[in-house]
Design a protein around this nucleic acid. Structure first.
Lengths: 99, 99
DNA sequence: ACATCTCTTAGATAGACGTCGAACTATCAG
DNA sequence: CTGATAGTTCGACGTCTATCTAAGAGATGT
């Protein structure tokens, strides 16, 4: 086992950091992230998206969140189960704190 | 004196939070912010901007940082003196931590 | 097999944003 | 006053991105 196996102390590359920053810039996307974070895990269909947003747009935002490494998604029957990657989120905050 | 006079515990409105998130999304702007934060105060001309960026663009980014409330700017002769607003920065990080 | 539910992908469009050059303002030195 | 230095403002341009509709794809129930 490696020392970096301690996922509570992950460190982000510059690219990861920038990807996350870009991802958080959209208010809708941050709102989605908040909902995912507020539960242990959340089904995609349970997302409460105010303001008549199309499924395609939700899917787009979820992919951005996944590609930024902030969210994990897993099929569960017809639905997608979403989870915040806490270790990445914590690493992002630590990065900001180092400023 | 009011309770909110304690600037170490400022709270951001939704609009402030979103403005800051948008502002941080640009890597160049974050790099500028880092430099400002690394000093008590910094003259605009002392900014080390890698990659041939025009004065107009720097000025643009600095205004964004100011309008987001992250940076204070003050004339000093011909130069502009820049300072990070720590209380706002800390409030932003606290907001992220509440997720 | 078929219909249904739940997302995803593709393509198009409109608006936001980073960037620059050029012209402008403000400050200071002679 | 003149010239030089330091930023700012303006207008334009190209790229990126949030959004939609329409069509596709995977899972489940009948």
């Amino acid at each position: 086992m490696t020392a970096s196996a301690d996922s509570s102390q992950e460190v982000l590359t510059q690219e990861q950091f920038q990807a996350i920053s870009r991802t958080l810039a959209d208010p809708r996307r941050f709102a989605i992230l908040q909902q995912i974070a507020s539960q242990q895990s959340l089904l995609c269909g349970s997302l409460d998206v105010q303001g008549c947003i199309s499924p395609a747009t939700i899917s787009h935002h979820l992919r951005e969140l996944q590609e930024a490494g902030l969210v994990d998604a897993e099929r569960q029957g017809r639905s997608m189960c979403l989870r915040l990657r806490r270790s990445i989120w914590n690493a992002y905050i630590r990065h900001l704190q180092q400023i």
